[in-house]
Simulated assay, not measured.
Amino acid sequence: MVLVLLGLLALVVGGCACVVWAQRGGPRWARVVAAATLGAGELLRASGKNRRRGLNESDGGGGE
């Protein structure tokens, strides 16, 4: 389990480094990795919003 988490951390750090490098005019592969990293971040952000929205609707609070 620890190895999986370390691998995931390495991917995240590498993706962030590619985003910075691509902004500074890095090679094409770095721009591709940066685009994939930013896309994955947007997907995670959208799934988090959908999850929270579902929790708010199911609580029956009627806060609207």
Rank of each mutant, 00 (worst) to 15 (best):
M1T: 06
M1Q: 11
M1D: 08
M1L: 03
V2R: 12
V2I: 06
V2Q: 11
V2D: 10
L3R: 09
L3F: 04
L3H: 04
V4M: 01
V4S: 03
V4L: 01
L5Y: 11
L6F: 02
L6A: 02
L6G: 01
L6T: 09
G7Q: 04
L8A: 04
L9T: 11
A10R: 07
L11E: 11
V12W: 15
V12E: 15
V13P: 01
V13Y: 09
V13K: 11
G15E: 05
G15N: 03
G15H: 03
C16A: 10
C16Q: 13
C16S: 09
C16N: 10
C16T: 12
A17L: 10
A17T: 03
C18L: 02
C18T: 01
V19W: 01
V19S: 01
V20E: 15
V20D: 15
W21T: 00
W21L: 07
W21K: 08
A22D: 05
Q23P: 08
Q23I: 00
Q23R: 15
G25R: 14
G25M: 10
G25E: 14
G26R: 12
P27C: 08
R28D: 12
R28M: 03
R28E: 13
R28F: 07
R28Q: 10
A30H: 11
A30F: 05
A30C: 11
R31S: 11
V32T: 11
V32D: 12
V33P: 04
V33W: 12
V33G: 04
A34E: 13
A35C: 07
A35Q: 14
A35H: 10
A36T: 00
A36S: 03
A36N: 03
T37G: 01
T37M: 02
L38A: 12
L38M: 12
L38C: 09
L38V: 15
G39C: 12
A40N: 12
A40M: 14
A40T: 12
G41W: 07
G41K: 08
G41E: 06
E42G: 03
L43Y: 09
L43E: 06
L43H: 05
L43F: 14
L43T: 01
L43D: 05
L44W: 05
L44N: 06
R45Q: 05
A46F: 12
A46I: 13
S47W: 05
S47E: 07
S47N: 01
G48H: 04
G48T: 01
G48V: 01
N50D: 08
N50P: 01
R51M: 15
R51C: 15
R51P: 00
R52F: 10
R52K: 07
R52N: 07
R52L: 13
R52D: 07
R52C: 10
R52W: 08
R53Q: 01
G54L: 06
N56Y: 05
N56Q: 09
N56E: 10
E57I: 14
E57R: 11
S58H: 01
S58N: 01
S58D: 00
D59F: 13
D59G: 05
G60N: 05
G61Q: 13
G61T: 13
G61L: 15
G61I: 14
G62L: 13
G63F: 09
G63D: 15
G63M: 11
E64H: 08
